[in-house]
Every structure is written in C-alpha cells, then in structure tokens.
Design a protein around this nucleic acid. Sequence first.
DNA 1: ACAAAAGTGTTCAACTTACACCCATGG
DNA 2: CCATGGGTGTAAGTTGAACACTTTTGT
Lengths: 223, 223
Amino acid sequence: MKKKQLHNFQVRPDSFECSVTADIAVFGYLDNKLKILLTKRSVGGYTNHWMLPGGAMEKEETLEGCANKVLFSLTGFREIHFEQVKVYTSPDRHPLKRVITVSYYALVQPENHPLTLKSNVEEISWFDIDNIPEKMGFDHRQIIHDAHNFLKNNLKDRLIVGKLLPEKFTLPELQNLYENILGLQLDKRNFRKRIFQMDILLNTGEKKSGIKGGPFLYRYKNQ
Amino acid sequence: MKKKQLHNFQVRPDSFECSVTADIAVFGYLDNKLKILLTKRSVGGYTNHWMLPGGAMEKEETLEGCANKVLFSLTGFREIHFEQVKVYTSPDRHPLKRVITVSYYALVQPENHPLTLKSNVEEISWFDIDNIPEKMGFDHRQIIHDAHNFLKNNLKDRLIVGKLLPEKFTLPELQNLYENILGLQLDKRNFRKRIFQMDILLNTGEKKSGIKGGPFLYRYKNQ
DNA sequence: ACAAAAGTGTTCAACTTACACCCATGG
DNA sequence: CCATGGGTGTAAGTTGAACACTTTTGT
C-alpha cells in the first residue's frame, strides 16, 4: 500500500532535486541598434536552434558564479556585471529532464567583446532585439522578451547603459541608444537637458570626426 | 586518472541537481501596522527559529504551484496572488544540503485569514515589519528585507495594496497603510488628491462609526 | 461643550513637453 | 556651396510639495 505523503514540505535528504541553469541575456549596441547575443550549440538538445548563452550550475558555486563561468566559456567575455531577471520553472520547459532556469541580463560593448567560436559553440551572433529568430531553443524567446522589458524599466530610474557604449561617445549616439532600448523617439533638446542635469557626463573637448556637424565626445564621470 | 571535465555546461542526465524551495513573504496590515507572517516549525532544521513559510518544489509542479500548496498547507491561506522577488543560491545557505530558494511576496488581510496551527507548525504569528526576531532561520532576514524593498518599489507605480485592507476602508486607513509600507509620513491633502486622481476608489456613502470625525468608507472599483 | 479626527483648496516651485533656427563639418 | 547632422533656449502645461482651518462625531 502506498504510504500517504504527509503534507510536510520541509527539505529532507530525499527531497526532489532538479538541475538549475543560468541563461544570460547579453545586450549590446552595434550599428545603431540594440542587439542580443545568441549562440547555436554543437552539443546538447536544440542544436539547430539559436539560444541564449547559458548552462548548468554546479555543486560549489552560486548561480552568479555559474553565469560568469558559462558566459566566459561560451563567449570569452569576462567580468561582466549581471542582474537577476526571473525564474522559469515550468516542468516541461526542458526536453531532457526537469530543469529550472534563472535569467540574467548584462550589458556589453560589442567593440570590446569580439565574437569568437569557443568549444561547443557552432555559431554566435548579435541579433537585432526586434528581429530575433522565429524558432528558438527552450523558452528563450519569452526570456528575451522579459529581459528587454526589465532593461526598459531599469532605464527609467537608474542609469545603467554606460556599459553599452565605448568609452567616448557622442550625445546623439547616447540618445539613439535610449531610443533603441525604449523603442520610441525622444526630443533632442529635452534629452540633452535631462542627461546634463544628471551630471554624469564629462565633455572631453574632442570632436568625433567623420560626422557632419562635428559632435563632441563625452565620457562617464568617475574612474 | 580523473577525467578532465570539458567546459561544456549543457544540461546532461547527470548534471548536478539540488532541491528548490519557495519562501513566501506574506504581508498583512493589522493594528495600523505592516506585518509579516512567520512560523516556527516542529520538524526539520531551525526548529527553534522563526522563519518564512516555505517548502520544497516537487517533480510535477511549478514553483508558483509549490508556493500555493505550501502556503495553504502551513497556514490554510488559499488563492493568494504571488509575485517573484529574487533567487538565493549561496551554496551553504541550507544546513542539510544544497538548496536554492526563490522568494515570493503576497498581500493579505489578516481579518480574512485567521491564524490556525496546521500540522508541522509549532507557532505562527504576525510580526511588525520593523521588529522581526533577531535570529531567524536560513537567510530569511535578508529575504524579508528584499521583499519589503520590492513592495515599496511596487507601491510607487502600480497600485497593489488593495489586498491588504478589508473590502471597505477609510482614506486615513489607506494612508496609514502607505505610510507603513514606505516608512514615511505623507501629507493628508496631497495623498487624497493623488488617490482620487487615480480614480480607483468608490465612496460607499457609509460612514465608519466609532471614530471621531465620521470618515467615509471606500472600496476599490470593479468587481 | 470639548477633544479628536476627517475633510477640504490654493500657491509656489520643479519638472516635462513642445517647438525652430543657426552652426559646424563632410562631401 | 550645399547637404547633413549637431547644437542651443523659451514658453506652456503638468506635476509635486507645502501649508491652516472648518466640519463631524464620540465622550
């Protein structure tokens, strides 16, 4: 006779276990477009699908540590700052076994992070955020959507987009980045006013050449 | 010879697994104070410590499902709305084994949810949010702190505090609730203006008796 | 009738939005 | 020299903050 399970949800040695992965939505800004970094893997499930870089947490690491390790391993990117976005726990989200995933987002400058093919990666590429592949592995389309929303919301209060631009950039470049993230047009004068009020930029005095109008180059204050 | 692990973080059948729990920060509003619901368990680790209601996810359920089940089992509360707050993955956060937890927050009216001692619960009680026990189980002190911040931030844009009040309430009661969550004093007239602008309240025409001044009772619009 | 709490408007400052022209540079 | 994009200011509307007295009810 099957023993009726007591309603005791304390963790016991034999509590159910599953694998845990970190999936990282790396955003970049390239060709005046907000991009997201996707890979095709040469091993595992979904080998023919684009997916976010991600991988399984191991015994002695935090998920943040895992995210760092995995991202380095799949892309070579190092010392990237992450933030948690959301947990996905649908029982059938992974074809092989029960796996829950935590999504992170990160911002990088593609110029400083050239793409190289590391082992187990078949393809790696930046995709326009509003033009990602139709069929993606797992629930990564949803994860990207949620991460993009998270980024939009963060843009409003905190100001975390420095990482997406090279050290020196022009104000129109910064404005275009904002417009890309938010998906809307901003007024040039009002945008500049807001940015200057924040008092976070330093005019280097240099002008960017090759562009009509001769825009000044700025960089973020502090270090 | 130990086989060197390839840097392949794909999920495999033998990928590391751990238990996953949901911990729920249930907020209530009682005696004009914002409270959080804590339990002492009669089984498992930390039996002498207050802790958040929570428990382990099982094979065929989502974490949200788990949170619902666990909360019902430990408190009898049903059909509560949750939102994810954060994931905690420190390898040594649980004394028995590797366990990661996802925290949720929920809002209830204590009047509608009388506390009863369910099985495996030794004590259950509402605690003032700014006067929680010194020693708590696991990292629950941190989790409560993060959940409270989450609630504060949510209060600013979305308006999700209806669940903390009885169906009919006075504006001073609502204001006191806001002040409790935010931890600051608000101007009566400005508060009323803001709330009325939102156009979410309906004046029932009734007055609450037993209180000098004879305040009107309001309720949220729609259903 | 007195004490306690509810209810009510206005002013000022700060911020947000809309809007048009001149200047610098590249071709 | 002309086309392209960069840079600048002001006025109107909106929002947020400060502030005191009258009305209602309980005791």
